Amino acid sequence: ATPIPGGLRPGMAIYVQGTVPHHTKRFRVNFSCGSEKGADIALHFNPRFDSGDKIVFNSFQHGKWAREEYKHEMPFRRGQHFEMVFSITPESYQIMVNGAPCYEFRHRIPPERVQVVDVDGDLELQSLNVMGGGVSDWGVGGAGDVGLGRSRTAPAPQPHFPYVANFPGGLTSKKTVVVKGFVPQGAKSFSINFKMGYSRDIALHINPRLNERVVVRNSLLNGQWGAEERALPHNPFQPGQYFDLSIRCGNGRFKVFANGQPLFDYNHRFREFQQIDTLEINGDVVLSYVQF
């Protein structure tokens, strides 16, 4: 169970990542108004493989279940990984599975009353992040426990809580950093910075600006920003969408791929890339994991 201090509010999102085992019959995600048995449930999300491949949505109040709602298309597959996001709007929970809209469940109980998100049933849960509202990460386990190599379950960065990781020994040629995440609705901007030690300098600054629909790349060296690079074949960063970014350090440049496709090259402006030892990510983004 993941606590929600202060309750849910519009603009917040819950990001769940896991795998559906081959033997799965059903699992559930409950947005509960307390941790005690019999507490009200604002949203009961219940995929059922054992009764016609459907998802049941409901709420539980005053000791009894209310009217069920159904979706008869099953976006989950046995034996497969999934990512889903519950975005809280003033009217409803907007639910996305694997980047595609799944369902909209209108509020029956004010989301502010939700105190706990509980995931249970036939499910291998890898991470659960709470995004927005000044709440930092409430991780479930570590991604490193689920066969993802040397990876970290990343916190959901907030304006005052950037995700920071250190590369032991600095970057090397052919080193690849993978950043997977989700751009929430209403996002304005976030940044991925490759930095040198304790200096403020940034060797590579990747800055998707959702309000300008551009991805700016630059370097901050000796306290001075250089010339921005903005040209792109496509922009993979869209509100409500997942992204899978692969950043490879070469001898002459960084090569960056998004969702498996080349996105841009960035020639080294700071040539001693072995001194780049810190990754910092902040802004309007939900991270699922970072691997290096």
Rank of each mutant, 00 (worst) to 15 (best):
E36T: 02
E68F: 09
F86C: 02
Q274G: 12
V216N: 08
G226E: 06
G18C: 04
G141Q: 03
D122C: 11
I206R: 02
P162F: 11
F167Y: 12
P75R: 02
V216A: 13
I276F: 02
E36D: 04
L245Y: 01
K64L: 06
I206A: 03
V20G: 10
S35V: 12
R78Q: 14
Q126F: 08
Q274T: 14
N207L: 10
N46W: 04
L287H: 02
S35K: 13
F105E: 08
H234M: 14
Q274Y: 13
N251G: 00
R269D: 09
P111N: 04
D122G: 11
N30P: 05
E68C: 09
N58R: 00
Y198V: 12
H205T: 13
V286H: 04
D40Y: 09
I88F: 07
I206P: 01
R213S: 15
T172I: 03
F194V: 12
Q274K: 14
S288C: 07
Y198W: 06
L232V: 01
G6E: 12
G52D: 15
I55N: 10
G197N: 07
A13E: 14
E104I: 11
Q158I: 04
H72K: 10
S219I: 07
V140Y: 10
E112S: 14
N259T: 00
G79T: 04
F27G: 08
S35Y: 09
A42L: 01
G18Y: 01
Q224K: 11
F167D: 06
D145K: 04
F243R: 01
I55T: 15
N211R: 13
R9F: 10
I55G: 07
K180V: 00
R67D: 05
L125N: 05
P233N: 02
G132Y: 04
G250A: 03
M84R: 03
G34H: 11
V183S: 02
H23T: 15
F194N: 09
V29D: 02
G252H: 06
G134S: 03
P208V: 10
E91Y: 08
P111D: 06
N251Q: 05
S87L: 03
F60P: 01
D265H: 07
S199L: 07
A100I: 08
V116Y: 14
C249V: 06
P159F: 06
H22V: 10
I281W: 04
H205L: 13
S32A: 15
H205N: 15
E229N: 09
E91I: 05
Q80P: 03
L232R: 04
H160Y: 13
H107D: 00
Q126C: 05
I4A: 09
P262G: 00
D53M: 15
D244T: 01
L245D: 02
L221R: 05
K174S: 10
H160L: 14
F194I: 09
L287Y: 03
G250T: 07
T2Y: 03
N235P: 05
N129D: 03
N267R: 15
V130A: 07
A100M: 13
F57C: 14
F243N: 01
K188C: 06
I276N: 02
E36I: 01
D50H: 12
